[in-house]
Write a protein that binds this DNA or RNA. Sequence first.
DNA 1: GGCTTATTTGAATCTTGTC
DNA 2: CGACAAGATTCAAATAAGC
Lengths: 367, 367
Amino acid sequence: MTKTMGAVTLPLNTILSGDCIEQMNSLPEGSVDLIFADPPYNLQLKGELHRPDNSKVDAVDDHWDRFDGFAAYDRFTRDWLAAARRVLKPDGAIWVIGSYHNIFRLGAELQNQGYWILNDVVWRKANPMPNFRGKRLTNAHETLIWASKSEGAKYTFNYEALKALNEGVQMRSDWVLPICTGHERLKDEKGDKAHPTQKPESLLHRVLVATTNPGDVVLDPFFGTGTTGAVAKMLGRDFIGIEREESYRKVAEARLARVRRYDREALAVSASKRAAPRVPFGQLVERGMLRPGEVLTSPRGKTAKVRADGTLVGDDVTGSIHQVGAALEGAPSCNGWTYWHFKREGKTVPIDLLRQQIRAEMGERPN
Amino acid sequence: MTKTMGAVTLPLNTILSGDCIEQMNSLPEGSVDLIFADPPYNLQLKGELHRPDNSKVDAVDDHWDRFDGFAAYDRFTRDWLAAARRVLKPDGAIWVIGSYHNIFRLGAELQNQGYWILNDVVWRKANPMPNFRGKRLTNAHETLIWASKSEGAKYTFNYEALKALNEGVQMRSDWVLPICTGHERLKDEKGDKAHPTQKPESLLHRVLVATTNPGDVVLDPFFGTGTTGAVAKMLGRDFIGIEREESYRKVAEARLARVRRYDREALAVSASKRAAPRVPFGQLVERGMLRPGEVLTSPRGKTAKVRADGTLVGDDVTGSIHQVGAALEGAPSCNGWTYWHFKREGKTVPIDLLRQQIRAEMGERPN
DNA sequence: GGCTTATTTGAATCTTGTC
DNA sequence: CGACAAGATTCAAATAAGC
């Protein structure tokens, strides 16, 4: 399918091959409603990484993610963002996604070029890969930036649709969604993953429902295995993909052929997952509801002292509220939340009361 | 209180007044363990714009205006980050916090100066202000960046303490914490909020427990009403604050006078095994806890025999407990302490139990 | 088939001390 | 500085295997 823009024709619902900058420059100016871009992250990985069970982590070591320093990465970023801005309609918008390796370069260059940032959005992964060596925090999120072509542009935002997706409450800038695994994860002939960084359809679903209307043209300059195209097709949007790796294009073509518009199952995938409102005991300490050094008591008169990291110290025992309670009682297990008490205004109260306070604040709506 | 660094003296637990760059430059080089910085992002740039060639600023052109705005902000960022880097110890680290208005400039400049990003952390606000006009997503988070002074530096990370704070599960890069309200929010004489962007103590508590030890020196160049100093004092860390607004300094001084330090026992946090003293396997043999000739077994049924010098003999392999374990499993490495087991009273027990016995005798508290 | 347990895996800047 | 050796370290979800 093609759409005619003046004298030039727009190649809709196809995958263009080759360099994304050249291909974008061949498209007519101001012809696209939305761009979704998942560029290389420039991960700069060095050695191998093994899990504690000695299995090897299948890292992203593809040639397309290797750059010769920040200067080279910045040049690349500047060039493709400029080409993208040219093909955007005046009221068009862009989404980019990245990690701390590249997102700051991306965001700064967006601002430099006159794009106007509307939100940064955090994709909180429900099931991220842990930090195996215990040397940093679990890298549990990626960042998306949503920007209009320029300040004052009349961008598309389907506020009510997103509110509906979020069970009637205004959608926040942090989205909890699982990573792409299982049936959705595309495999090659050998049964290995077809692309190292395939994004979940639920993420694209939310992006496209939020910031496009049916019939809009969505461009993805780093098409990969075509998640953007697949979701666009399901939602009745037109897409243009650009991908230079033939193997990815092949997988994407086959995938797109299978996709039907308004796929009910895909809509179900997008339903927001409710994370369980687990409240770690340490948060009572961080929030100042209990003071490090404060003494907790048990119904039968045992005592323990709170430490700054949310552990307890009793007679010759240190550990969580549950561990110390169990040890002092000589029991196999213990629910520390109901076992331990503190004093407020002369009354002795179980610490579970404080947990209930936190849960009430959260409105039982962690998403 | 002051600490002496060579010929120069460090002004501990005080608030310095004036420009943070000048004040940081007056501090001795390499003298600070951690910097926490919450810089302004809505600078009033009047009169601060210096184009290199004195060219006339075209006041009507939005684009130029914006460019000069970013350029001035970038200059400011570059200067204070450079001054901060100078006062950091080689193994020191920095935290910065910001929103999408400035965090991309901050992150990019950190990388440009050779800081090494360790994590970006999302502070997910439990109770954010909604977006009243329904034109964007609720801005429900801010971003922190944690970076070491340079690649390969031995930064401080209390992994076990953070794991304890999170109920025994590795801490993630997304932190759910409430914004600073109610009792904690400082008021001025008129009863209005004393500072527009006061950070919650819970946020600083987590930052300082994670990346400093008691006695460390924490510098906050944008001290405001002193949240960093207050939490540092509670946690037994020393602080240096810099703040140029007298009204904020006044509020901070009064606040700090009210803060009490937690007792010593409460400040201890769960320790890493890495900190425990090293016990050579040969010592178990020397002490008669294992007999030469005794057979050790692995969970999957491999066996090896203990020799008098503390090495093991397996099928065609001889060497340390780690080497023989790795060879028998065909693995790149192996922790022999948890891999090898022996029999006592009918039970199969990992040899690590014997190491723990020795460490306990040495007066170490197993944590 | 149904239920329980074991295995696999994911955009990762992932060790430290001694010689 | 490099080479070598000791030894510390993982969470959630999907799938596969076992009963």
